[in-house]
Design a protein around this nucleic acid. Structure first.
Lengths: 342, 342
DNA sequence: CTGAAAGCGCTTACAG
DNA sequence: CTGAAAGCGCTTACAG
């Protein structure tokens, strides 16, 4: 059933049928009714490949999500979708695997769908540097900020990872912890991890302390992986009394590992997370964490995008994270460890 | 940059360019090389709208997922994708909101993409009954089985929800629990919840007991909602010593609520879940649950689909769930409550 | 091995 | 208000 069939059945031309179907103003209301009835009766579904092939001007915004199962992104998407629709666009979400190249995907999407703009959720700075110049519609990179990325059609938005990392460490130091371990992503390639890590170093510095890099353990953003990472870390450094995990998912994996090893969290070892995803407050102990302002990130992202669509210049926006004290961090009590000396 | 531009640049016809780009056998290798070089040099990306508009025979399988943030589905998708590719198809995932009609989506997808088959992850039996006849390619409904759905192009696959529900209740009864609460979805519309509920009733029956429906509390498949549901349930029935939650997400929300109310899980109240999603073993206490055989479900789904694509008849497949005892259920110790009588 | 032509299903100036 | 025609970017018989 195509528009042609409807034309035949209704004895109108395809042009008129098309106009009826698309709420075109220049059409007789009776004609329109007749045509719409026939379309409905025959369960007509327009072929959007054909529509898009014609329509150079899709009124859409595409979200490209790198990493299908990132709990932080999942909920951010809902917020983004809300603001996209509020701005009068249609939102399409495109999930790609971490190993895929988001810029290649964006190029394809541009060729096919001609969206008005793209929001990247996660992205590899390297991929951007290499090929972003081939994209010429407004884009927002969310959540990562890199000064190296300087294009007239790219805005960046992110939580202040540097400040967040520093705050996390200072918070633990203030609680009396001195043996602090850190688990997080690849600090040589993952932008936000790198910044959080630098923040950590700053936090130590401000207290006149330095961080022993052997207390850092790599983990992907995954329950199982962080579970194993922490086990390795604690075996190497049983003196640790607090752990900063660069995501809540990691904090949960870490806490579970610690409890399985026989430690109490937070009594024996405190754990602090990052992100503020929903599940962090359903875990026991409830995870103390830094909340990324999801709604603000989403709102601002779409503001940036629409203003660029309207010809404005791009911008870089940094948003502050907020500490939420829950149950997984406590003050470190110095156990006096003095051996009796004669 | 289109195929036409490449034709102009290469001084070949569009037909030849198309053949070069598509690995067509009837083409001179030198010609092909030249054309491919030009395509690469110009970052040519084919417009897949145009391709699909032509290609009546896409070699694809579409997964339509109802409910974007269902943790059980998320991991099932990965398995499905694996088997789809293994069978030589390309897999596309289409997320729709719970309120959207999956059959309408399928009809549109058929019109646009002409896939070889569709896998539905979740679905409303009512929608199927109303409009599925309009779909004429092989489909698999996963995970729900309804005898009312009898079409030559629809297979169903599901875990044995009825048996699972019965086993859950019998397990709790065997552990000595007699005051058992249940939280789950809408048992009048959600097929799998309905079956799990019927299973529960059977479980009680086998022990010569009956279930007081006031001990059932509705919850959506969501942390927050189950958190609140359980609070309502326990306020109404403080005598409860064990809860069956129809999903692990609910079990986690429930356990958190109980602990926040001051109960110990499982010492005061045991909680058993359903699904076997990853996070259930990272929660504290680790959730005792019934594992749905995800890999088997995925494998069998694609087997069913491909055999239908090859002209075979549809089938209904029921797979057994498996109890995994972890930490959230313990034996109920009868506290003697005898008042001294004179 | 290559090219000219038709056509996939739709939209949209243009003419009336 | 309506229709005939061109065209979006591609593929594929058909002819040579």
């Amino acid at each position: 059933m195509t528009i042609k069939d409807i034309a035949r059945l209704s004895r109108y031309s395809v042009s008129t049928v098309s106009r009826a179907l698309n709420d075109h103003p220049d059409i007789n209301q009776d004609t329109k009714k007749k045509i719409l009835k026939i379309a409905r009766d025959n369960n007509f579904v327009p072929n959007s490949n054909a529509i898009r092939l014609k329509a150079f001007e899709e009124n859409s915004v595409v979200i490209i999500v790198k990493g299908e199962f990132n709990l932080f992104f999942s909920s951010l998407i809902e917020h983004l979708q809300f603001y996209i629709e509020k701005s009068g666009f249609r939102g399409f979400t495109n999930y790609i695997h971490t190993s895929e190249n988001e810029i290649q995907t964006a190029i394809r999407v541009c060729a096919e769908q001609k969206p008005k703009g793209i929001v990247f959720l996660g992205g590899d700075i390297e991929n951007f540097r290499k090929d972003f110049e081939r994209i010429n519609i407004p884009c927002v990179l969310c959540t990562a900020i890199s000064l190296e990325l300087d294009y007239p059609n790219l805005s960046c938005i992110s939580a202040d990872d540097l400040a967040g990392g520093a705050m996390a460490i200072k918070f633990l130091l203030e609680k009396g912890h001195r043996n602090i371990g850190i688990i997080g992503g690849d600090i040589s390639t993952e932008c936000s991890c790198q910044l959080r890590y630098e923040g950590c170093l700053k936090g130590f510095e401000e207290y006149g302390l330095s961080f022993d890099t052997d207390l850092y353990e790599y983990s992907s953003f995954d329950f199982n992986d962080s579970y194993n990472s922490v086990k390795r870390l604690i075996k190497r450094h049983p003196e640790i009394t607090a752990i900063f995990s660069m995501s809540d998912v990691m904090a949960i994996g870490a806490s579970t590992a610690l409890m399985d090893m026989g430690y109490s969290v937070p009594e024996d070892i405190s754990v602090i997370g990052f992100d503020g995803i929903e599940i962090s407050k359903f875990f026991k102990p409830k995870i103390t964490t830094f909340i990324q302002p999801q709604d603000k990130i989403a709102k601002k992202s779409i503001e940036l995008l629409t203003s660029m669509i309207n010809g404005k210049k791009p911008a870089r926006v940094l948003l502050q994270t907020k500490l939420i004290e829950r149950e997984s961090v406590v003050e470190h009590m110095e156990v006096s460890n003095v051996s009796v000396q004669f």
